[in-house]
Each structure stands twice: as structure tokens, then as C-alpha cells.
Design a protein around this nucleic acid. Structure first.
Lengths: 234, 234
DNA sequence: CGCCTGCAAGGTGTATACACTTTGCAGACG
DNA sequence: CGTCTGCAAAGTGTATACACCTTGCAGGCG
């Protein structure tokens, strides 16, 4: 009886995992429609399970669900995109601060192994590389002994995929592996200031890679945008 | 046609709101059972809507849902409780830092009015007072222009109710109003350092008010607890 | 008297049915 | 030819039905 345990995943769990994967891999892109019955047919289950999965994805802000309307993959507007990166800087800086000089040898090894894996990945712009890049950040956050922090970082990392999909070019080396290496180095030699700075610089790089411009996001409203076209057509 | 808009709340929305309220008010206490059909009967709806509401509450970590088992109101163990307060300190400190010296006169007035409302509330240990205290923190977080931050703070504030319910005495003046006043004062005179410190001190006070001790949370396991009783009975 | 076994009751997981809402389009109408 | 109207198709909101899991307890067995 020591056996058994866990294992059992409900149907909605499987669908949740599949959809989530498809979204962060950008197979499903922001704005794509997610009709419950179509998805259900596709997985061979009823709408019931699909609804549960969609609800969960909605809670994580990976899908938008308007009442009585088909759900769609979330597409963060520029303002939201900035808020997400802003928050990542805030949280992951905290991760760096807390981890600097406090990593065990085993943890450092785990991180270095992960970075090595990233380097060895053949296609640098592949879905796999993108996935690994995200995992690096999750791995790091998971080493802080605070599951709330880990969960928030993980959520933000996922949502970043949406932003890259919208404003960057698909999987354009989401994260420079060298920057990951620099972060690990600073952390393991216990240099908190450098670690924090490396993290900030890294996230800045990632954000820049996706040019979220669009009128600096403060000017973002339909009126302003349409006005530009009106001028052209006048 | 400028009219209409919003308004329509689905049944699961209503149930979600009701359960949520009951939980943060501590009418439903941590560990309380939440059987879908019982709740459905109670609200005159089917399990379907209740399930959706519970799923949402689960996503916010206000209820625990084990597979094939009745859902219960979440009861954070001491470790989790510390993680939540830890995270609150991290995020709300950021709120203070960002708000200091950047509040408009109108915002300061809103805050002062809220604090006045808190002071005037007759019963200081009432559900109402508790609710207002939480709202103060949400109000503050909402003034930072970052909805992600606001959402996380709001979630943590709600979860704090669970902790107070478990480890504090019910609604024991969750927050000292004077401390709220001090925070507003520091913010409005633009003293970031003081604001941050006031916030930290305040959250420290709140956490202390609920003595989460229980063996310092590292020693938290059933064995250790039962051992104490074994000694008594020996 | 204590432990194990099996069963019934309580509850969840999932499919299905049906009502209602939204949306796009065809055809009437100016 | 553009606009309005109404209807059918697509899709969601909710209730209900049934299979299966989990748990507590009654009764047998040592």
C-alpha cells in the first residue's frame, strides 16, 4: 500500500495541460478562438471537462473569457505587457537577492546543468529553446523557499510567452543563454548586487526584444489609433 | 444604445461572491466542508454553477480541492502562512515605495477618508472593521498603475483572513488604524523610506497578532504535535 | 475486545440535453 | 447600392443523469 498515490489526472487536467502547452509554445496564438465543443471533439471529451480547463487557464490569465462568447487566447495590450514585465522585474529581482550566496552546491550544479542544456539545444529559436528559457526562470524562483513567489513568477513567465508572440518575432531566442549564465555566476559567488543587476539587465533585454512600443502604451486607445488612419484618408 | 453594458452576473458569479464573502468574513472557517450539492441546494442552483465557483476560489487558494473528495475552505499551514506574509511584505513594500510622493491630492483624500471610516466604525473587532482593513490595503495597491500587482496583493489580503481565522482570535482588530494613518502620512509627504518602513512595521504587527509559532513552522509535523499531548497524558 | 471486511451512503467526474445569446448573412427596402 | 431586418448557425449557461470513488460503520472473526 505504500504504492499508488497521485498519478490520476482528470480529463480536464489533461486538456488544461495540452492547451497550456499549445499556448506557451505559440501553436495557439493570442486571439485564437477556443470554442468548447470544438476542443471537446478534438480531445474526445465533453464540453464539461473543456470548460473546467478553460476556467483554469482564465484564472491564470492565459485565456480571455467573455460572457456568452467564445473564449480566446489572451492578448495582452501594450499596457498590460508592460505591467507584466514590470512585475517580473520586481519579483525576479527579489529572487536574485534572496538566492545570492545561499545556493547549495547541488543547486548551483542543477542550474549550471540547465544552462548547459540550453546551450546545447540545436535550434536556438525553437519552441524547445523557448521552453527551456522559461524553465530557467521557474527553476530559479523555485529555489527560494516561498511557493507563493514561485507561483507568481511561473504565471508571469507563461504570460510573457503571449507577449513575445504578439510583439516579438516567434521564439526569437527569448533569453540569451549567456545572460542566464551570468546570473548563475553572480548568485553562486554570492554577489547579490551583481545578481540583481544581471537579472534586471536580462529582463530588460527580453522586454526590448519585443518592441512593445505602440505609442508608448500611454496613448493606447482606439480613438488615438483610428485618428491616425483618419488623417491618412482625409 | 450607449446604455446597457455589464450588469449580467452568472449564477456561478453570485455563488462565487457569496462563498468568498463568507470565507473572508470567517463565517466559513478553514477546514469547513463545501459539498457541491449542499451548496447548490442552499442557493437553489445545480452543482454545475457551484463547481465553477469552487474552481475559481480554488484558483485563488481560498479553497482546497482534492480529487474525488469534498472541497474544504483552505487552511494554510504555518509555513504557508509565513510565505503569504513574507510575500505581502515584499509586494506592499513595493507599493509604498512607488506611491510615496506620487499621490494626487484626490488620492490622498480618498485614503484619508477611508481611514476616517475605519476609525468611526463602532465595533473595532467586527467583520466590518476587518473588511475595511483589508480594503485599505487593496485601495493602496490599486493606486499603483499595475493591475498585476493589485491582483496579487488583493489575493494575499484575502488569504490573510484565513490565517487570522486559524492563528489569531477572530477579527482581533486585524490592522491598527493608527498604523494605516501613519502610512498615508508618510506617503503623502513623499517620504519613501518612512512609508516603506511604516508598511513593514504594520505588516509585522499584523503577523505577530496571529501567533503562527507552532514550533517555528520548521518543526511542523503531526508527530511533533501529538507528542506534546502524549506527554500530558502519560 | 480488537481488528478486519464489505457494503451502503455521501460525493465527485463526466456526458448529455435544452434554453438562451450572439453573430453573420441573406434578402427586403429605401 | 447602401442600409436595415430577421433568421439560422454557432456557441455558451445551466440542469440533470449516471458511473465511479471514498469513507464510515456494522458485523463477523480471531
Amino acid at each position: 500500500m505504500g504504492r499508488a498515490r497521485a498519478g490520476k489526472t482528470s480529463r480536464s487536467d489533461k486538456i488544461y495541460a495540452a492547451l497550456r502547452q499549445a499556448i506557451v509554445e505559440q501553436t495557439l496564438r493570442p486571439g485564437d478562438r477556443l470554442p468548447e465543443d470544438a476542443i471537446g471533439d478534438c480531445f474526445g471529451v465533453s464540453r464539461t471537462s473543456v470548460r473546467a480547463a478553460l476556467a483554469r487557464l482564465h484564472a491564470e490569465r492565459l485565456v480571455e473569457a467573455r460572457r456568452n462568447r467564445v473564449a480566446i487566447v489572451a492578448s495582452p495590450d501594450p499596457t498590460e505587457a508592460q505591467e507584466i514585465f514590470d512585475m517580473r522585474r520586481c519579483l525576479e529581482q527579489e529572487v536574485a537577492r534572496r538566492l545570492a550566496g545561499r545556493l547549495t552546491a547541488a543547486q548551483v550544479e542543477t542550474l549550471e546543468q540547465h544552462v548547459r542544456l540550453e546551450e546545447q539545444t540545436s535550434a536556438p529559436d525553437s519552441q524547445a529553446a523557448s521552453q527551456l528559457a522559461g524553465d530557467f526562470h521557474r527553476l530559479l524562483a523555485g529555489m527560494v523557499n516561498n511557493r507563493v513567489l514561485a507561483r507568481y513568477v511561473s504565471e508571469l513567465v507563461s504570460r510573457s510567452s503571449l507577449i513575445l508572440a504578439l510583439y516579438g518575432q516567434a521564439h526569437s531566442t527569448d533569453c540569451a543563454v549567456s545572460e542566464h549564465r551570468a546570473i548563475v555566476a553572480a548568485l553562486s559567488r554570492g554577489d547579490a548586487a551583481a545578481a540583481v543587476q544581471a537579472m534586471q539587465h536580462h529582463l530588460g533585454t527580453v522586454e526590448k526584444r519585443s518592441s512593445i512600443k505602440e505609442g508608448d502604451a500611454r496613448t493606447y486607445d482606439v480613438g488615438a489609433i483610428l485618428k491616425r488612419y483618419a488623417v491618412k484618408e482625409a
